[in-house]
């Protein structure tokens, strides 16, 4: 399977990575080579095999509903690139940016 530059652009948009035209061209080449090598999996007979999502089969453990130590705003914001009062500050959010 080959990947097109357009697919690379769409994927980069989803991954929020700015790529120059030169990078798109290089990425198209490199991802194409890697995906080409993955093609061999298509030949493996996986009929009736359940996908393995976890390395070890465990039950999901549950914790008690207890409030533990919190960082509080000051420590939470300590590493923020930009803050405003007790908030993280970001470039203006427009409704259409939200996918969820």
């Amino acid at each position: 399977m080959t990947i097109t530059p357009e697919e690379v652009r769409v994927t980069a948009e989803l991954a929020r990575l700015a790529l120059s035209d030169e990078e798109v061209a290089r990425m198209t080449r490199e991802l194409g080579a890697i995906l080409g090598a993955m093609e061999r999996l298509a030949a493996v007979d996986v009929e009736g095999v359940a996908p393995m999502t976890h390395a070890v089969a465990l039950d999901c453990p549950e914790r008690e509903d207890v409030v533990g130590p919190q960082l509080g705003a000051e420590r939470a914001l300590a590493g923020a690139p930009r803050r405003s009062g007790q908030f993280f500050e970001v470039p203006r959010v427009i409704a259409h940016d939200k996918e969820g």
């Binding site: 130590p69 919190q70 960082l71």
Partner: peptide, 12 residues
């Protein structure tokens, strides 16, 4: 609560 007070490493 005051903004960002109910936070821990996971929440952030």
């Amino acid at each position: 609560g005051e903004p960002n007070d109910h936070t821990d490493p996971y929440t952030l």
